[in-house]
Write a protein that binds this DNA or RNA. Structure first.
Length: 892
RNA sequence: GGGCGAGUAGCUCAGCGGUAGAGCACCUCGCUUACACCGAGGGGGUCGCGGGUUCGACUCCUGCCUCGCCCACCA
């Protein structure tokens, strides 16, 4: 199907079924594209690169609607830029997703009564690799079903050997630069997953709790002080009571000792400005082992640290045998009982508070003191902030810029170590002598003592530490490969807002630190997919939808369009299956337009070159509309306004092309303009497929292939950029006239119930040039299904008439339908029109009569109103004339 | 406690200073040789509420009310 291809090749019109079958076409074309290597991207100095790094899906489960949307948008951009001649790389891959996979595996093991600890590290990793293989295959299959044009040969997994090496290299560079340190700090601890997590992985949920007011008696036998706490079980680890230094209620107590209930331990009363005087009683118990603020206060006051429970949340021996081995939540109940029975529980009140929960497993997080690795963020953040401020990295929609900057400006150090097994083991080696060496390979000997028995750090890195390298490591970093030189920095990152801090920010920081360049120039934040009630789609809530099911029912093209069509940028996306069904209907509409085209193009020589100097009104008009549509769609995509692009395409195809152009073209397909019309019809439809291809890849290829075309795939067809000269204002005006006349006549027909009745009609004009009217007549006749051909062009009917006119510079076209028995209905219709017209006219007149309006409004607004007023007056005269004509018949 | 976003036709959403729009749903007519996954026509909105700016406000400012999301170490 190549060279100078001029006939509508392929199958015959009869073979095309009445409804489009997406499954077959999608499967067939996807395989063709892939086997022909259309998705491959290799550095080509003759072209400019365009790169999108897919936000790597976690290997935790199947793809959901969020992926369908996110990947759909990316593929849309990639296909568009590829058609524009860019060397387009769509980089796919998957994330090992450390903690998330641990949670999945734990759940699987739990069914067999196992835990990762009972299995041991090695067996656990074996099982997890098996899982990765299975789920990885499934995910790859699903991404193909979405018709993504990724360069699959570059597919990367974050634990591939090369990627693993890049992560280690990154760690070592940052460590040597002093940007990574190890230390005992208070971190967020998940007692279920048995690991620390970063601040961003704690999810705060508002919950009902109780605030307990507890008296700590004075060591001297005095009343002491009453404090308020939500966590009576941590009383066991109290080391002080703190009050505000300026709080006069407690001035006398500062420096004295009070007795901690239950454990009867004397502790000091200290003063610290961080205490809120207004909260509770103004006095707070200090438990440095189990609360971040208390920890900080404790440090400053050199207080000891006591630990009430271990990493599993199990109580230690601080409270004696009564508390030992209890879970912390159980211990709380006992503590309340004990406080109550010893008479120090002064009061309990209901209290709502934010409880921190583990992002992944929802377990209540414990602040816990632990030896961890941290990444120093301030210095990394500064250049990233600058890059965004200077507009080198741009967010779309723009409001996310502030969102990003606000967080970056108050950034805190990042806990990057995890007490997990699935992940990148930290490349640090310990020697018995206390030495610590960062190295990818096991050091032969300890640099300090020469000992050879070095052991590697057991902790692995936070998953996001490795994903932060995604745009670089996939291209070969730390090696300065040809790919890295060519494709980095990448072009557009399309992602969800909930990982702007977790991922986007860290890519920017790492890119600037390690490669001295931003990772991407544009970030498009796609909407969140919600269900129709506006609730988050979630498997656990049962509100999720399976994109694969929708693809089976309606096709990937339809799913893609339905989603991309609702990317307004500002709004989240309430989604329902109905939306995909509607798009399926759109696809079918396209399909049938193609069938019609094939029917008429079959067996004719139809040029593939753009039509030149077309003569008929429909042809001139549709080229004008096509030029406008192409410009609008291009501009919309450039501005990341996907919904605008989709709406324009929908409107052009369904309304302008199918409803108006095709109907009018039918008139010409038999006459002397047939060749020109075939050419325009085939050309416009084919090029429209090119405009739509980024959103609906398969049907557009299918239709394009069935039409006269050049080249072997629509994927490589040039992006439509029609010349400005195709704009045809005269054709637009003439078509506006046709549309108005047709609309009015159809209205009359339908409203008067004339649809099934044959109606006599005549076409009349005063002063208009006959040629123009004659030219429009056959189109109108077809559009409104009236036989106008044999009726006189001039002369009014003797009988009553009704019809419609449209003002034109050169005269007036009127169509009169004779139906004397329907006069009453016609009068009703025109009366109604007159009423609404009078209302409009009154509004305009009021404004024009207001001197303030004339004085203050811009001249063109005033002029437009004048013109409108005049046309309304003319219209009113016409309507009045019709009504006069429709007056009850005089006796004959 | 701060910040951001949303509240426009029954539903999902555009519009964002100069005549209230789309798709779907609904009602009426039509199996007209591309399409009933269709065609033609029609009904339906005091643009969340109150002030203000303006010749003019759905659109700008300012309060308030609902809803959603993010950030925050008042125990």
């Amino acid at each position: 199907m190549a060279d100078g291809q001029k006939t509508a090749g392929g199958r015959t019109g009869e073979e095309l079924p009445k409804t489009y079958d997406p499954a077959a076409a999608e499967e067939r074309w996807y395989r063709t594209w892939e086997t022909r290597g259309y998705f491959r991207a290799v550095p080509d100095p003759a072209r400019r690169p365009y790169t999108i790094m897919m936000p790597l899906p976690n290997i935790t489960g199947e793809l959901h609607m969020g992926h369908a949307l996110n990947n759909g948008v990316q593929d849309c951009l990639i296909r568009w830029q590829r058609m524009r001649g860019r060397d387009a790389l769509y980089q796919p891959g998957m994330d090992h997703a450390g903690i998330a996979v641990h949670v999945v595996m734990d759940r699987r093991f739990a069914k067999e009564g196992l835990t990762r600890f009972s299995l041991g590290r090695e067996r656990f990793l074996e099982e997890t690799w098996k899982w990765r293989k299975e789920i990885g295959q499934a995910i790859l299959g699903q991404m193909r079903r979405l018709l993504l044009s990724c360069d699959w040969e570059r597919s990367t997994f974050t634990m591939d050997p090369a990627y693993y090496g890049a992560v280690e290299e990154c760690f070592i560079r940052l460590y040597r630069k002093g940007l990574i340190y190890k230390g005992k700090r208070m971190i967020n601890w998940c007692p279920k997953d048995q690991t620390s997590i970063s601040d961003l992985e704690v999810e705060y949920v508002e919950e009902q709790s109780t605030l307990y007011y507890v008296r700590y008696p004075g060591a001297d036998g005095g009343d002491g002080v009453v404090i308020a706490t939500q966590r009576p079980e941590t009383i066991l680890a109290d080391v002080a009571v703190a009050v505000h230094p300026d709080d006069e209620r407690f001035t006398k107590l500062v420096g004295t000792q009070v007795i901690v209930p239950i454990v009867n331990r004397p502790v000091p009363v200290i003063a610290d400005r961080r205490v809120e005087r207004g909260f509770g009683t103004g006095a707070v118990k200090i438990t440095p082992g189990h609360d971040l603020l208390d920890y900080e206060i404790g440090q400053d006051h050199k207080l000891p640290i006591l630990i009430a429970f271990d990493p599993h949340g199990t109580m230690g021996d601080l409270g004696g045998p009564r508390y030992q081995r209890l879970d912390r939540m159980e211990a709380r109940k006992i503590a309340v009982d004990d406080l109550r029975s010893s008479g120090v529980l002064v009061r309990e009140e209901p209290y709502t508070t934010n409880i921190g929960r583990c992002d992944r497993c929802k377990t209540t997080i414990e602040p816990y003191i632990s030896d961890q690795w941290f990444c120093r963020m301030k210095d990394l953040a500064a250049p990233a902030i600058q890059a965004v401020r200077q507009g080198r990295v741009r967010f779309h929609p723009g409001r996310w810029t502030k969102f990003f900057l606000d967080w970056m400006e108050q950034i805190r150090d990042w806990n990057i170590s995890r007490q997990l097994w699935w992940g990148h083991q930290i490349p640090v080696w310990y020697c018995g002598c206390g030495e610590m060496v960062a190295s990818i390979e096991r050091p032969k000997a300890c640099p300090t003592c020469g000992g050879a028995a070095l052991t590697q750090e057991q902790d692995v890195l936070d998953t996001w530490f490795s994903s932060a390298l995604w745009p670089m490591a996939t291209l070969g970093w730390p090696d300065e490969t040809a790919d890295l030189k060519y494709f980095y920095p990448t072009s557009t990152l399309v992602t969800a807002r909930d990982i702007i801090f977790l991922w986007v920010a860290r890519m920017v920081m790492f890119g600037l630190e390690l490669r001295r360049d931003i990772p991407f120039t544009d970030v498009y934040i796609n909407p969140t997919v919600l269900n129709i009630e506006g609730r988050r789609m979630s498997k656990t809530l049962g509100t999720g939808m399976d994109p694969l099911k929708l693809i089976e029912r309606y096709g990937a093209d339809s799913l893609r369009f339905a989603l991309i069509n609702r990317c307004t940028g500002e709004q989240d996306l309430r989604f329902s299956e109905k939306m995909v069904e509607d798009t399926r209907n759109f696809a079918n509409k396209i399909w049938n337009a193609a069938r019609l085209a094939r029917l008429h193009l079959e067996g004719h020589d139809v040029p593939v070159a753009p039509p030149q100097a077309v003569r008929t009104l429909p042809n001139r008009w549709i080229l004008d509309r096509f030029a406008r549509t192409a410009a609008d769609v291009t501009a919309a995509l450039e501005a990341f306004e996907f919904h605008t692009a989709c709406h324009r395409l929908y409107e052009f195809i369904w309304s302008e092309f199918c409803d108006w152009y095709l109907e009018m073209a039918k008139v010409d397909l038999d006459g002397e303009a047939a060749a020109e019309t075939r050419h325009v019809l085939g050309w416009v439809l084919g090029r429209t497929m090119a405009l739509l291809h980024p959103v609906m890849p398969a049907i557009t290829e299918e239709v394009w292939q069935a039409l006269p075309h050049e080249g072997e795939t629509i994927m490589r067809a040039p992006w439509p950029e029609p010349p400005a000269a195709w704009r045809d204002v005269a054709a637009e005006a003439a078509m506006a006239e046709v549309m108005e006349l047709a609309g009015a006549l159809r209205g009359i027909r339908a409203e008067l119930g004339l649809a099934t009745q044959p109606v006599e009609a005549s076409l009349h004009f005063d002063g208009a040039d006959g040629e123009r009217v004659t030219a429009l007549r056959p189109y109108l006749a077809h559009l409104v299904r009236l036989d106008l051909s044999r009726l006189p062009v001039r002369g009014l009917s003797e009988h009553g008439r009704f019809g419609i006119s449209t003002p034109s510079g050169r005269g007036r076209i009127e169509i009169h339908v004779e139906a004397p028995e329907l006069r009453a209905k016609a009068r009703e219709r025109f009366d109604k029109q007159l009423t609404s017209l009078e209302r409009d006219l009154a509004g305009v007149t009021r404004r024009l009569d207001d001197p303030a309006f004339a004085a203050n409004a811009p001249a063109e607004i005033v002029a437009a109103d004048r013109a409108r007023s005049q046309s309304l007056v003319e219209r009113r005269e016409t309507l009045r004339r019709y009504l006069a004509d429709l007056a009850p018949l005089r006796p004959a």
